[in-house]
Simulated scan of single mutants.
Amino acid sequence: MRVQRLVAALLVALVAGCGPAVAATDDRVPSFRPAPPRPYAVGVRHLVVDPDGSRPLPVTVWYPADPATPPDATIQEAAGPDAPVAAGRFPVVVYSHGLHSLPDLHAPLTTRWAAAGFVVAAPTYPRTNLRARDFTRADVRNQPADGWRLIRHLVRLDARPRDPLAGHLAVDRFAAAGHSAGGFTTAGMFTSGHSLRLRAGIVIAGGGLAGSFAGPVAPLLFVHGGADPIVPESVGRAAYDRSSGPAAFLGLPGQGHGEYLTPGRPGFAQVLAATTDFLRWTLYDDRRARDRLRADAVLPGVTTLTTRALPR
């Protein structure tokens, strides 16, 4: 409980100092607005993209829900299935799991992003998830197309009358993020000529796929353990070096493949803070979040940060 309260307090600190959200004055959903000054409660919804197609894609969606949480509330106490979506439009993060994994296993990070004012849509990839009947590692090469299929579905969903998410998605403000094979999937979504809807990416314990980072240029954040035995840090560093445009590399010396994604473990607070700052900067145009990214990301002896071409 103490760790949960600390994380809730961290989220309050992350969203502090920004302009207040614009309140709805009638039944219409307000247009896109500045980053929220307080955390939200978190709702969760499950849907399936192309359920009758050859490659159905189950998706877990976490989203900001009403009411905003009090400062001492925990994310778990605030969460609820199919809770009403909070008023306003919210940027969207497509989050990709790794091999033998599931979206729910990443909830400690993704629910906190949702509390900070993002809709997080996490697909269960058909042939690499934990329960896949025909598990195939090579299917990762097909997953970037799945990510784009999800983006197109969400754009349509936002315009669909009576859908609970309709009018709540900032459909010109997407980011992609993912861990391990999901990090490679994320990189693979940034191929030449990709839609400008995709504004930013976070690659956690991953690297690049063929054709990654070819443009248009988008800011990228790489997160990697220095002693990762599954995907060596050198793979993540090579992807960082190969990317063009603004980029940052958050290193965790001595850490492995993802223990820093567990609340209470060394580095979790810095990863949460840095990724949230990055998303607020790139999707909400929050310059204060950009300016505090370095201070939030670095804890001597736990994390390091290398940056390239970040605007000041």
Rank of each mutant, 00 (worst) to 15 (best):
T186C: 12
A205L: 02
T185E: 03
L150G: 05
D158H: 11
T191A: 14
A187T: 13
F174A: 10
R162H: 14
A166N: 08
F213V: 14
L157W: 08
R160H: 05
A175Q: 05
L209G: 01
F174W: 09
L154D: 12
G215A: 14
V171C: 13
S212Q: 04
G201N: 11
S195T: 13
R149Y: 00
I204Q: 09
T191I: 10
T185H: 00
D163S: 13
R162T: 10
L165P: 01
S180G: 09
A176D: 00
T191N: 03
V155T: 11
H153G: 06
I151H: 05
D163C: 02
F184D: 03
V171D: 12
G208L: 10
M189L: 14
S212H: 02
L157I: 13
A214I: 00
V203A: 05
R156M: 12
I151Y: 00
S180C: 10
A205T: 11
L165T: 04
I202Y: 00
A159N: 05
H179L: 08
G207S: 13
V155N: 01
V155W: 06
F213Y: 15
D158Y: 01
I204C: 02
S195M: 00
I204M: 07
T186K: 02
A181V: 03
G207P: 06
G178S: 09
M189T: 13
P161K: 06
G211D: 11
A170G: 09
M189A: 06
F184E: 10
R152G: 15
R197N: 02
